[in-house]
Design a protein around this nucleic acid. Sequence first.
DNA 1: TTCCATGTTCCGCA
DNA 2: TTGCGGAACATGGA
Length: 263
Amino acid sequence: MPELPEVESYARYFARHALNQPITRADVRDERILGEIRKDAFARKLKGGAFTSVRRHGKHLFAEVAAKKTWLHLHFGMSGDLAYYRDPKEAPRFARIVFDFAGGAHLAFEDMRLFGVADLVSSPDSFIADRGLGPDPLDPKFTFSRFAELLERRRGAIKSLLMTQEVIAGLGNLWVDETLYLASIHPRRPIDRITKPEMRAIYTSMRRLLGDVIARHERGGKMPAKSLYEHREVGDRCPRCGGTIERSVVFGRTTYFCAKHQR
DNA sequence: TTCCATGTTCCGCA
DNA sequence: TTGCGGAACATGGA
């Protein structure tokens, strides 16, 4: 379930469990999950190191291996997840890489659909720059004026822009729909027809939503009954205004919205 | 059997 | 140059 809030939860999970334990083995069980690097080079570079810190940018997770001067980079695709466990029998069915630690524990990078990627990179900052990723919306430096700048001289549907990782890094289909629902903006609204107050509504809704979803992951709660998330079905009643939930395709993705209050 | 899925990339066209 | 539609990738669940 990996958009920004999910990856943030994975990053915290990684930091809580898998830091500062010597890596005795990096077992690549399906080489298709690797990016550029080959399986033996990946394993050789990590063996004997230890993860020392974790960073997240957008949907990307980075774990530093300071002694080896490298960072593990993970992208979770559509179905990626992490699992930390002691008994090897608990390994997830679709574990693509398993890190064995000296203390006897294991960290699995699982990804059923194999759209995820694992790689080694020299630093998160150089990766972000090379990839041309936009700012992370939860970065404290990501102010409203920076957000407004991103919308300048842009055309097209607001949903497409918010989904584009080179513009803003981290939002995906689900939480873009939820953001626009909260801000009462139609997903196809042309960017150049969004007013300043509406921009602020989008900015505020987006940041509050992402924080809420992260907090919810931490305590394992459901989304509120009033959320679009709980009503992603054609013909459902909008829990905020009683309008009808409709579906269309925007930016190639199934899009749900309230036909009444999202304009 | 068929359709759909929280992502990304590449190609062709306007 | 920018934006968009479509297809592809791999796999399981409804």
